[in-house]
């Protein structure tokens, strides 16, 4: 088998670029901890409230420290449960000051759902029996729509919530 000189150069450059890409994402993942979410934490899919985070009173936004928040979400067809406000209405919008560190934790009561804070890197699958979680710093002010981006049934496109990051 014979490779033309130019093909050798091309393959060296091409494979070299792939190695560089891998090194960059590998460095981010293994040294800076930016792996895609994969904690392997399991939960009883028939009773997600057995996990402290998904008890009704703990759903939605919780401030844990200065600039540190947790958002717990119970997903079900076709709704994100973010808890209730003082008047007992379902929360649909979460407001977070800019620059906060936010831990999103989601679990599903029924089928597979998605959880994407559109326009950010918070993009996770939510599967029965597992807790999905991702920590991020909300650095850019704006209004973000949370969308379910994994097909979950006829009301899939009606499954959403909002995150407001204010200055």
């Amino acid at each position: 088998m014979h490779l033309h000189k130019f093909e050798k150069i091309w393959l060296v450059c091409g494979i070299g670029s792939l190695v560089v890409f891998l090194f960059i994402v590998g460095y981010g993942a293994f040294w800076q901890g930016t792996h895609p979410q994969s904690h392997g934490v399991t939960i009883d899919p028939y009773n997600i409230e057995s996990n402290e985070a998904f008890k009704p009173e703990n759903l939605g936004l919780t401030k844990v420290d200065d600039d540190k928040y947790i958002v717990n979400i119970a997903a079900s067809a076709f709704n994100y449960d973010l808890g209730k406000d003082e008047e007992g209405n379902a929360v649909k919008t979460i407001r977070i000051p800019k620059g906060s560190t936010v831990l999103f934790q989601a679990a599903t009561k029924d089928v597979v759902h998605g959880f994407h804070v559109a326009g950010t890197n918070v993009n996770m699958m939510v599967e029965p029996g597992y807790v999905s979680s991702l920590e991020t710093v909300m650095d850019n002010a704006g209004t973000y729509t949370i969308v379910c981006n994994e097909y979950c049934g006829v009301g899939h496109h009606m499954m959403y919530a909002t995150v407001e990051v204010y200055e």
Partner: peptide, 20 residues
């Protein structure tokens, strides 16, 4: 033995640049 492939070489390199 060695066909002239300079155009090919430039083409694939442009392709590589696009990917990068």
């Amino acid at each position: 033995e060695k066909p002239n492939l300079i155009g090919t070489f430039i083409s694939v390199m442009l392709l590589g640049a696009f990917i990068i």
